[in-house]
Amino acid sequence: MAEYTPVGLENDTRPITALTHSGNFHADETLGYVILHYALAPHGDLKGRVLGESADDRLRFERSRAPDRIGAADIVFDVGAVNEPARGRYDHHMKNKPLRDDGMPYSAAGLLWKDYGLAAVRHLVATPVDDATAEAIWRAIDGSLVVPVDQDDNGVAKMGKLSLADIVSACGPAWDTAEVYGVQEAKRREAQGFANAAGIVAAHLTHMVDRVRASLKAADRVVAAYEQAEDKRILIMDTGMPTEKVIFERDLPVVYVVSPAGPKQWNVKAVPPVRGDFGQRVSLPEAWGGLETTALAKVSGVADAVFAHPARFICGAGSKEGAVTMARRALEIDAASRA
């Protein structure tokens, strides 16, 4: 977080001109532009501003390498060979690159996220959140999206094919566009490509922020459900939501998670031994695997049993009570088999 007030955040009315370089564009400067959009002028025209079609907008945006345009802009990023955030300069191409605390070089987007990310998050969330939640979202997006962009843009590690970086690059015109269509058309296609890329990045960032917000909400509910559980090995959730992250981060001894899978079904899902892995801490009973309805009800003793997957990591019943009973009986059968 900044120890100074970043340019444009001192008030919300002063017109701000932001500039990045022209020519080939990447995930770095595209994400940087999107961050500034949400931090400073979230109601503006994201694409129209790039294409020069948005006149009434607090944030003005340019793509140029001309020294006079760079000097005149309020915020300059990924160009200019200067990193002085207090006066709106965010380049990272100099010999002494700006570094994170762990030594990782920042990209321009990383530098902008450090200063403007929290303001962007507050505009991206659908409903207001408290300071602690906003900062938690900011940190989560920093680790999951911004750091990979830092790594990719600095040649530390590629994001890979079909990554955000690859998709952004694919929005640019082909190398021979000027040769085939002429210089003016090449410039038009480059601007349109950047605008399209910005739209993609903006949608991705918006969805990521909302998913992180929901993940934090889920964490609180998972912890509350665990604290109320009679048998700490069985986590009963009244709403379907991600639970595995919290279980492993907090080292909870949960074996089965019971949650609704629709209006007429509740599932029992086995927790894997390692987060994201296949396998189960305790597999469902071997005799249940692959059975459905009547056959499963007969073997399990649960009248409204619906199914048990052949891999024995999930099963279901028609009611919450039936699913909880299946979880308890699975644990009893496992204990008996070990006796």
Rank of each mutant, 00 (worst) to 15 (best):
T239I: 14
G110W: 00
E332N: 01
H207I: 11
T20Q: 02
Y90D: 01
A303F: 11
V76C: 08
I200A: 12
V168M: 07
L9N: 11
E84I: 02
A295E: 08
H43F: 13
R63S: 07
V34N: 02
K298C: 12
N11T: 10
A191R: 08
L36C: 11
L252G: 10
E321G: 09
A308Y: 06
A297C: 06
A270Y: 06
T239V: 15
R329Y: 09
R60W: 05
Q184C: 10
N196H: 08
P98L: 06
A295T: 14
L40C: 08
G8K: 09
P242W: 15
M326Q: 02
D231Q: 09
D56G: 10
A287Y: 15
P98I: 07
A218E: 08
V209Y: 12
G103L: 05
V147H: 00
W113K: 04
K114L: 12
L51G: 05
R69G: 11
P273Q: 11
L31C: 09
Q265N: 08
L205D: 03
M1E: 15
A186R: 05
E292V: 12
A303L: 13
V209C: 14
P310C: 08
G160M: 06
V82D: 09
A311V: 11
L216A: 11
K232L: 03
Y116Q: 03
M208F: 04
G32E: 03
A195L: 05
K47S: 12
D78V: 03
P128D: 05
A140Y: 02
M94P: 15
E332R: 00
I70H: 00
A157H: 14
A229V: 02
H123Y: 03
V149Q: 00
A317L: 05
G48W: 00
R233E: 08
V274A: 15
A126G: 15
K245P: 01
I167W: 02
N83I: 07
Y38S: 14
D153N: 12
N96A: 09
Y106K: 11
L284S: 05
D45R: 15
V258L: 09
T325M: 13
G240I: 09
W138C: 06
V257Y: 01
D91N: 10
G8W: 07
K264P: 07
R312F: 13
H123T: 06
V209Q: 15
S169M: 10
G110C: 08
E244R: 07
N154H: 05
D334Q: 13
R213P: 00
V168K: 01
A191F: 12
S319M: 01
P67C: 13
E230Y: 13
L111M: 14
H43L: 15
M208Q: 06
T133S: 10
R281L: 09
F77T: 05
M237E: 05
Y226W: 13
R60L: 05
V306M: 12
R329M: 12
Y106F: 14
W288F: 15
V50P: 00
I314P: 04
S337Q: 11
L216M: 13
F307R: 13
Y181G: 03
I141A: 01
V282Q: 02
L118M: 10
E286K: 14
Q280T: 10
K232N: 04
V146S: 10
I314D: 01
